[in-house]
Amino acid sequence: MTNDNVKQALRDLFPDPEPVVEAATDAEAEGDKKKPAGKKEEPRINGLIERDHAVHGYDIDVQLDPGELLAAVMIINKAGFFIESITGVDWIKEEQLEVVYDFSRYDFDTCRIVIRTRTPRSEPKVPTISKIYPGANWHERETHDFFGIKFDGHPHLIPLLLPEDADFHPLLKDFKP
């Protein structure tokens, strides 16, 4: 029940709810070889995709704009999810950085939510969620260490795992040690 409510609430975030089916993305993955070389992949549009837990390990996959992030996290917080982790992915070809948020439930009825948001690589900035989930504090600092993503409103955005004077971001794809 809770899951359906959360799904609906998250769907409501998107102005034109287009039902995206899992088959589309799987076909895209498998159909890679068939595609003529040099053809650019279509970037994923914002929205909610239901994933097969057996294949991907999570159930709900949401991509949204950084502006909608706080609204989505508030829905998840209200539904009683706990924060699993926050991390980044550097999509250097698309000139974008992706921030990935994982949430899960203690009364796990097969529901793991992934929230993704993309920010331009030249000026990576997303709002902090550490006011909703204080545990995000460390995860955001770590993501800032590794990718240089600024978390707007973070109370203490200094290096956590890297040296205190570090000015490099090792997980960026153009990082040279």
Partner: peptide, 9 residues
Amino acid sequence: PPKGDYYQA
């Protein structure tokens, strides 16, 4: 592995 995002706990 084929293109994609996989998670395991």
